[in-house]
Design a protein around this nucleic acid. Structure first.
Length: 475
DNA sequence: CGAAGACCT
DNA sequence: CAGCCAGGTCTTCGA
């Protein structure tokens, strides 16, 4: 079920470790992320055996693990997580095939109509899915002024560009609509129903070794990128259901990354906001504008949200300027003002980078490491990117640690088991649990309690809970 | 197989 | 003067 890929190198069944993956490279990988040792173990075995096999495999390389000081992370988090993932993969999530089918019919009909309309506007048939052909139609034939270039210098036809030239020609609107519907058809509506089992359930593969930060990834099919926004997001999510007699509960960590940031940085403003359960974006806006929270305007809150979100990624003034539609200089002032108000936060950022530079790696809450050799690059752009990665990895990776701890705790929880509940999906800051109708409420509340108490931070962890027959209703 | 694009947190 | 924020998966095109 689970193909393990380690930093791009596939470990195939029966492969000789020394042949396909040299020891220095493995040690490096272990040291970096502490998750490589069950790669070999998981691969060739039935999923049920994955956990045990990983442990057995562990024995052979314990020395390496301990020398990397990663045994606790492995022993207490990653290895216990394996049977949890196996259970989630085997459980799968219910799919409403009739809803899928009706949805596909609607989308196909609209795509046919849009294709006719677009070809008519263009005056000649062409492949709408080809960005090259589309650019030729838009920018040469129809003489619309181009809106931007791709990384390789081509004239971009990306959504963001098309949004900007929306009013100039009716074809643009049709193409945006076409793109959205074509994505739904080709990625979700057509492939997914082919993958369901006899019980109409869909089983993903949770990959424990795919990311550099410690997050999981999901593939074949990816159930971590099911549409939720846009005109058809809710309808898409409503196609994912609980089994007969069951309901779903969705438990979302609220602002977990900013809470992690508050915990590590000890910034008084952030700590205070979360301890008083205030709206963090409104609070930031109030700080920036020197107003009481109740006087913050919607656009001021939106700007604060962008900056709060952006600082998890180490957003620069250019990007901020574009996001907020202000000049770069204004953005610089905005950022400066932000860090003047949150001086402890600024100091913490500097500390992460300084420690990373001297250690060569950053460390997350659970003791996961990420090596960042590019921090010492003479290339400024590379070094800057590594700095952003350092900050982001500590935050994103620690949030990943926390939800993994919650998953392990939930899996062994007697109360959830007694309620007939099982966790079936994880989407980075969200867990989906399925249980019989009569016990779903208790199961949701129990899961919520586990998620809120599994890690002890300097700020409370907040979890939003929703219950419903399908994934849309559970939000 | 890389580029472009679109979906997610 | 340009510089465009972190982590993923999947589909399609075109060489």
């Amino acid at each position: 079920m689970m193909t393990i890929v380690c930093h791009g190198d596939s470990l195939t069944e029966g492969s000789d470790l020394n042949k396909n993956y040299t020891w220095p490279r493995l040690r490096q990988s272990l040291y970096q992320d502490g998750r490589a040792e069950f790669a070999e173990a998981s691969e060739s075995l039935h999923p049920q055996a994955k956990g045990l096999a990983a442990l057995a495999y562990m024995q052979g390389i314990r020395g390496q693990v301990e020398s990397a000081r990663l045994s606790a992370l492995m022993r207490d988090l990653e290895i216990p997580l394996i049977p949890v993932l196996v259970s989630m993969e085997q459980a799968g999530i219910g799919v409403d095939l009739n809803a899928f089918s009706a949805f596909l019919d609607d989308v196909s009909a609209q795509l046919d109509e849009l294709t006719r309309s677009i070809i008519a506007h263009a005056g000649e048939p062409f492949n709408i899915r080809s960005s090259q052909q589309l650019a030729a139609i838009l920018f040469d034939k129809l003489d619309i002024k181009e809106g931007g270039k791709t990384a390789t210098g081509q004239r971009s036809t990306a959504n963001q560009v098309l949004e900007g030239i929306r009013g100039r020609h009716p074809i643009v609107e049709d193409i945006l609509e076409y793109r959205m519907l074509e994505k739904l058809r080709s990625t979700y509506l057509e492939p997914l129903p082919k993958l369901v089992d006899e019980g109409s359930r869909l089983h993903t593969h949770f990959n424990q070794l795919a990311t550099t930060t410690g997050r999981l990834s999901s593939s074949r099919p990816n159930l971590q990128n099911i549409p939720i926004r846009g005109k058809y997001g809710p309808r898409m999510r409503a196609c994912f259901t609980a089994g007969p007699g069951n309901l779903l509960a969705a438990a979302d960590y609220s602002q977990i990354e900013l809470r992690v940031l508050a915990h590590f940085s000890k910034d008084p403003a952030l700590l205070d906001a979360f301890r008083n359960d205030e709206d963090i974006h409104t609070r930031t806006a109030a700080l920036l504008t020197d107003k009481p929270s109740r006087d913050v305007q919607p656009d001021e809150r939106r700007n604060a949200k962008t900056i709060n979100f952006g600082l998890i990624y180490g957003m620069g003034p250019q990007k901020l300027a574009r996001e907020l539609d202000i000049t770069v200089n204004q953005a610089k002032e905005f950022t400066e003002r932000y860090f003047e108000k949150l001086t402890t936060l600024k100091a913490y950022y500097d500390t992460i980078v300084k420690d990373a530079e001297s250690n060569g790696f950053v460390t997350t809450l659970a003791g996961r490491h990420r090596l960042l050799p590019e921090l010492h690059s003479r290339n400024n752009q590379m070094a800057s990117q590594a700095k952003r990665q350092a900050v982001n990895t500590v935050i994103q990776g620690s949030a990943a640690d926390i939800i993994k701890m919650a998953m392990v705790a939930a899996h062994k929880d007697k109360e959830l088991a007694a309620l007939g509940a099982r966790v079936i999906l994880q989407v980075h800051d969200e867990l989906i649990v399925e249980a019989p109708e009569a016990s779903i409420s208790a199961a949701g509340e129990r899961l919520k309690a586990i998620m809120q108490t599994t890690a002890d931070l300097d700020v409370p962890l907040k979890v939003d809970l929703g219950i419903g027959k399908n994934w849309a209703d559970a939000h």
